[in-house]
Amino acid sequence: MERDELLAAIKDRMPEKRYIHTIGVTDTAIKLAKQFGEDPKKAEVAAILHDSCKYADRNWMKQIIIEQQMDPTLLQYHHELWHGPVGAYIAKTKFNVTDEDVLNAIRFHTTGRIGQSNLEKIVYIADMIEPNRKFPGVDDLRKASEELTLHDLMIKCITHSISFLINKYQPIFPDSFECYNDLLLQKKGQVKE
């Protein structure tokens, strides 16, 4: 499906504000993909579909997680995390996305993970810094996106996300800690990229 078809297909799945966010994430992901030498089309598809299940019924998402034998740890954490993995499932089954990198970019856009691809980093970052986001520190992250390598930018973004959750006394999904550790170990040359 092309951009306009995908956008039309997801528009009714979310409020107008989230749809505007999705367009912002899409445009930011395309820009970052070009900047960091990745496929802009893959970034576009992943970004358009990243929040396709954000407003889906919780019980339905829980059922998909169980039926599809997704990580059961998800069910121990806030339902806000569910839309990534369930969104990847919908991207595959409803939108016929077969590229595993695109699916993983959707699946892990809220948590990150060990061994992220560049596309996964791009969608994670784009979701965080798109122009409609307003939170303390977002302007610093946007500025960093113009100055840092993709790897260092991802470290900065995951650090911000984890710090935010810690300051709010919120539990942090294990994938996020593992992503942070993996990125730092790669930076220090202790694991292969």
Rank of each mutant, 00 (worst) to 15 (best):
K192Y: 14
H78K: 06
S117P: 10
Y77M: 11
T22N: 05
T110K: 15
I23T: 03
M154T: 13
D175Y: 15
I23N: 01
I158T: 13
K188I: 03
E5M: 00
Q68L: 03
N167G: 12
P136G: 11
P171K: 01
D39W: 02
I66E: 14
Q69N: 15
T110H: 14
K42W: 08
K192Q: 14
D12K: 13
D99I: 10
L148N: 01
L183F: 11
E5H: 13
I158W: 12
L49M: 09
A126S: 14
I65S: 07
S145H: 02
G84N: 04
W60Q: 04
V191L: 00
Y19D: 10
F173P: 08
I23K: 12
S117K: 09
E67W: 07
I65T: 07
F95D: 02
G112F: 09
P131F: 03
A144Y: 08
K187M: 12
I129V: 02
I30H: 08
F95C: 11
I64C: 00
Y55Q: 12
K156T: 09
T111P: 00
I90A: 09
G37E: 12
D152P: 05
G112H: 06
E16Q: 15
A88M: 03
K11E: 15
A8D: 15
F164N: 06
G87F: 00
N59A: 13
G189I: 11
G87H: 06
T26V: 14
A47S: 12
R142Q: 00
G115V: 07
K134D: 15
V45R: 01
I90E: 09
D139S: 13
Q35C: 11
H160S: 09
P15M: 05
